[in-house]
Structures are given as structure tokens and as C-alpha cells.
Design a protein around this nucleic acid. Structure first.
Lengths: 325, 325
DNA sequence: TTGTTTTCCGCAACCGTTTGCGAGACTGTT
DNA sequence: AACAGTCTCGCAAACGGTTGCGGAAAACAA
């Protein structure tokens, strides 16, 4: 069965296509009687306008693109979920594409976005991404680009970021406040700006006031190994820069059969899901993907409303107390 | 800056639109010289064909729809990720929509799919969904629908499911094999067919051979409470029907400071992420969303290739040994 | 009756791309 | 010079929907 079109309705009713179109849009030129006939038939035939035709005519799509290294990630997860929800509420659809940290696929995804004539793009560049020319090209085409989380260094673009410095500082201050003496701090890949920011803010806040064991881990497994090593030096607290690291550290702590917080304290920067899996729940500084998503969306809408003002926004950090410190 | 179109290229080159179109498609009618001129200009202008125009003309979109209660769920997560990857590899884009278990939103999402003229739909109906007429209507429009995970009871549609019975049976047999005597088994909402299937297969396999404490939980918190209660009766093993239940049960076990597997054994049916967060890792029967996704995708491609054969496919279950039993 | 206004509706162009058909400009043959 | 045969390319229609403009018919006034 073919799709219902204006043409089909018009033929069935002996009207012209334009009359049917206007009737469905409640145009004052059309008589009530005709409107009724048209809407009734449209209903029974389950008429749905062809979005492609509308797009073609208006050059305005109701589609956003979202490119991200992987949707299988706690943080992106909630971010995407928020964007999707806001999009729907505002009459937009969302095309989600993952690059798997592969720059070639990333370029393909951008091409697909351009072919689909998206009206806006949410982008998280992958670690490997060398040049962001392709993204800048979108801006030339008047397609707003909102970078989030992993953002380029350039100044003249819209970026929505987690408050990396503030959250690391907050975690550090919490540790100091609780009177801890010796902290095992585990950070991620130093090539990422997120790591650099969190690390520098953390160490700066600590500023020699405390015994600091610094480590890096590129994966959960890495974090577990690093924690096992670090525990030998008997820290009283473990700080984890991210959820991934937290999962590794927690495994090591369970392996060592340490009691939290009696034997050791734990604090993390997290999106909030992982910390609540344990008993006691882990105290963490929240970096809400959900909030970030809504911020990104409102920024997008501002761009579409004509704002050419580029800005870098950050979300607030909140300390969520579990019982781990 | 406006988008590059065939028209723009043709005007710049003094050619007709059709010649440009053919040149870009390497049509034999066009001379090599002209082809070269066209492709070069197209390259410098970053020409990308308008997918909407193509779609309008061919009535064939390269877009799949995916409607799901929530993408913030481990299982759907890996499923979606797999579908997205396969779609991209096959030249399709994916429009992801979440209903949040709200039937009204679900209907809106289906409308959006129809408006966008998707060429196929992956659907997981929400718990609340009463009638699936809207889904069946898609089939009337020659849009293949592949149901996954939560599927309707009807027989004449394509369904891709986890092997619920087989995985519950496998878990039960593992418990028997390990010589356990008293099992606390926690299942989900009895209104879901997934719960019914797993429960009946589990109890049937146990068949009085073992002391069975049956409980139900509708959330992780529920599961924690239920486990705390259940532990008073000193079971030697806990079985969790799902990841959500597992997280609750694990929290209760940690709260009771029980050692796994010395004090208590744990086994679950899971997608595999959660069990690996603990030490020792939890032994589980895997229900792979990834595999399910690929199966669903190949089923979709078969439909698009003209197969009208409807079938119900299930994935294999595999026991993944951790150290928890 | 004639002229004016209102009501209702259709014509046609347009968005960007594809494609069957036909036409003009060559080349080569007789 | 007349012809057929190739090589290149343009015309126009189609996909589905929107919209400015103009026109026919009806209603009303003089």
C-alpha cells in the first residue's frame, strides 16, 4: 500500500491539491464544509505529510545531528537522553552517530549530516581528531555546531563543558575538610584536556597540604592495577577522576577486602550512576550529563533564533554525599 | 552561505543541471573532459547531494527508526550501539526515539517515523502499550517492523528475543551443578512476559530439588530490601533475574558484609557490564544486546530484500564464569 | 440590469535530483 | 554532397507540498 498524499486525497474528493493543502492547514480561504470533508478523509487514510517534501521546499529540516565517540558511555548516555527528549518536545528529531574514536568514520558521519541537511549539530570530537575543519565548514553553511564535553581549543565556537576545575577543586576541598592525610589520586589519559584541567585544579587545591600519590590509568583494568599498587603505601583516601577509574578502584578495594570508609575513604567525580551501586554509596562530585544536555539544547535553540554570540558554558558542580568518606 | 546544488554548479560551468548530475554519477554519456570540470568544481564547493530531494524522488530513504522506552539502559544500550554501527556500515542513518514508557509519546514517535518516511523500524514496545495497531499500520505501508526484547504476542510479525527460557534454565542448572541447597531467587515485575518466561523455566528446572525462596522486585531499591529480608533465612545462593535486580542485591550483600562466594554465592542473568564491576566478578548467563542487535539488523535487511517470511529469532545464551559461585 | 464585494478555489512555480527521449554537432563513408 | 553513425548534452517531467495570484461564482447594492 502506498502512502497517502495530497494528490490522492484531492483526486478522491474532486478538489485541487492546493485546496486540500490549505484545508489541512486550516486556511481561512477554505470553507468549513470543505475543510471537514478533507480532514475526515485525511484521518481515515492516515495522512502524514512527507517531511522530505517539506524540507525540500522550506530548506528547514527538523533534524539535529549528534556525533559522539560512543553512546555506550555513562556520561554521553544521559547527555544524549536529555538532548533526545528536548528535541522531541521541540518538534525535532535526532540522528545519532557514533564514530568509535575513528576519525575516518567521524568524517563520514559529518558527511551524512550534511546530506541530511540537519539544522544543527551536537558534537563531541574524538580523542584522535586532528583537524576540525569539517566542523568549521558546517558553520560556514549556517549550521550551528555545539561542542560538548571534549571540545576544540578554538575560541570562536559554542562549547558546553563540565566544570572540570570547579569539580576537582570541590573534591579536593572535601578531602581536606575531612582531615585526610594521604591520598591516592588516580587520573585518566594525560592527553585529554579534561584530565589536565582536573589534575591541575586538584593539585593546586592540595598544594602540599597533604601527602599525594599521583597515578594515571587509561582503562578500568588499568585503574584496578594502579590501585592495587597504590594501596601498598597505605593511603587513607582514594580519589577517582572518572566513573571508569572508580569502577577499577572499587574492584581493587573489594579484592583487598577493605572496608569503606573504616579502612579507606573513596571520593570521585562522576555522573552519579556508578557511585550508587555500592554500599556505602560513594561520595562524589556530580557532573550531570543530563544538565549538560539541556544546556546544550538551549544553546542550540539560541543559535537557531539568530544568536551569533559564541560562548563557553559550564554546568555547576554539586557534592553528593554517600557514606564513603 | 547557501548549500551547493547541481543548479549552482551548472550555472558556474555553463552546463545544464542534467549534465552535471550525470557527470557526477560517471554516466557514459558525458565526456571525460566535462566530468573532470564538474567533479573538480563539486569538490571545491563541497557539494553534497540533498538527501531529501533524492528521497522525494526515489521514495527510498536511507533512514531507520528505532523506538525504545529508554536508551539509558544497559541492555538497550548495547543493542542500539550495534544497530547504529550496522546501519552506518550499510549506508543507513538511524533515528532514535525514546518513549519513556509513555504510550502517548510512543504514538508521537511513530508519527514522526512515518513523516520521515523511514524505510524500516526497530521497536521495543513499552510496558504500558495497550494496542499495537499503530505498529501494524506501518506494516501496511510496507515498512518492515522488527520487534525486539519486549515483543507483542501476535504471531505474524518479526521478533528478536533473548532466549529467556534457555538462560533461566542454564542459570538454574548451574546452581544445581554447584550443589547449592537454598536459593534466594529474585524476579522482576510479574506483568512482563520476560519475567513470566524466566520464572517458569527457572522453577521448572529446580522442580523441588532445592530449597527455593521466591521474591519479586520492581526496582533496584526494591531488590535491595528484598535481599536484606531474604538473607535472614540464610540462603547459600542468590539468583538475580536482571542487571537491575543484581545491583540491588549486591548492595544488600555489601551492607551485610558477606563475602562472595565464601558466605554466599551469586548468579545472574545479565548483559555483562554490571557483573564485571565487582570482585570477584559475578557469574552470569549472558544476554547479549550486541548480538541481538546484529540479528535484528540482518532480519531487517532480509525484509528489505523482499522476504515476507515472519519469524521469531532468539539469541544463544552463554554462561560467563566469574568467581561468585 | 449592471457593478461591487465576498467567498471559495485552482493555476503555476518552486525546492533539488534523476532520467527517458530527442536533438545538435561532429566524424567518417560513399 | 548526402548519408548514417557517434558523442555530448539539454528539455521536461516527476517526486510531495506550499503559496502568491488571479478567476469564477455567488451575494449584495444601486
Amino acid at each position: 500500500m502506498n502512502n497517502t498524499t495530497l494528490k490522492k486525497i484531492s483526486e478522491l474528493l474532486g478538489l485541487s491539491i492546493s485546496t486540500v493543502s490549505r484545508a489541512l492547514k486550516n486556511h481561512p480561504d477554505i470553507s468549513e464544509k470543505t475543510k471537514l470533508r478533507v480532514t475526515e478523509l485525511a484521518d481515515t487514510l492516515d495522512y502524514e505529510p512527507n517531511a522530505n517534501a517539506i524540507q525540500l521546499r522550506t530548506s528547514k529540516s527538523n533534524l539535529f545531528g549528534l556525533v559522539v565517540p560512543s553512546i555506550s558511555n555513562f556520561f554521553y548516555h544521559s547527555f544524549i537522553s536529555a538532548i533526545e527528549e528536548e528535541s522531541r518536545k521541540n518538534g525535532y528529531a535526532l540522528m545519532i552517530l557514533q564514530s568509535g574514536e575513528d576519525p575516518a568514520i567521524e568524517m563520514l558521519n559529518l558527511k551524512l549530516c550534511r546530506k541530511s541537511r540537519i539544522s544543527g549539530l551536537f558534537a563531541c570530537i574524538s580523542n584522535q581528531t586532528g583537524n576540525i575543519d569539517a566542523y568549521l565548514k558546517m558553520k560556514d553553511l549556517d549550521i550551528p555546531v555545539i561542542f560538548f564535553d571534549k571540545v576544540p581549543e578554538l575560541s570562536n565556537c559554542n562549547k558546553i563543558c563540565v566544570a572540570d576545575e570547579a569539580s576537582a577543586t570541590m573534591a579536593a576541598n572535601t578531602i581536606l575538610l575531612k582531615g585526610k592525610k594521604k591520598v591516592l589520586a588516580i587520573f585518566g589519559n594525560m592527553n585529554l584536556s579534561i584530565t589536565k584541567k582536573r589534575l591541575s585544579a586538584f593539585t593546586k587545591t592540595m598544594d602540599g597540604k597533604i601527602d599525594l600519590l599521583m597515578h594515571h590509568a587509561n582503562s578500568a583494568l588499568d585503574a584496578e592495577t594502579v590501585t592495587i599498587d597504590g594501596l601498598r603505601q597505605k593511603p587513607d583516601t582514594i580519589f577517582c577522576m572518572s566513573d571508569e577509574i572508580l569502577t577499577g578502584a572499587m574492584k581493587a578495594i573489594q579484592r583487598a577486602a577493605l572496608k569503606i570508609p573504616a579502612d579507606i575513604s573513596v571520593i570521585a567525580i562522576s555522573n552519579g550512576f556508578i557511585p550508587k551501586l555500592y554500599f556505602p554509596e560513594i561520595t562524589y562530585v556530580e557532573t550531570s550529563g543530563d544538565e549538560l544536555g539541556r544546556l546544550a539544547f538551549s544553546s542550540m535553540m539560541a543559535c537557531l533564533d539568530g544568536s551569533t554570540f559564541t560562548q563557553e558554558l559550564t554546568t555547576e558542580s554539586v557534592l553528593v554525599e554517600g557514606g564513603s568518606i
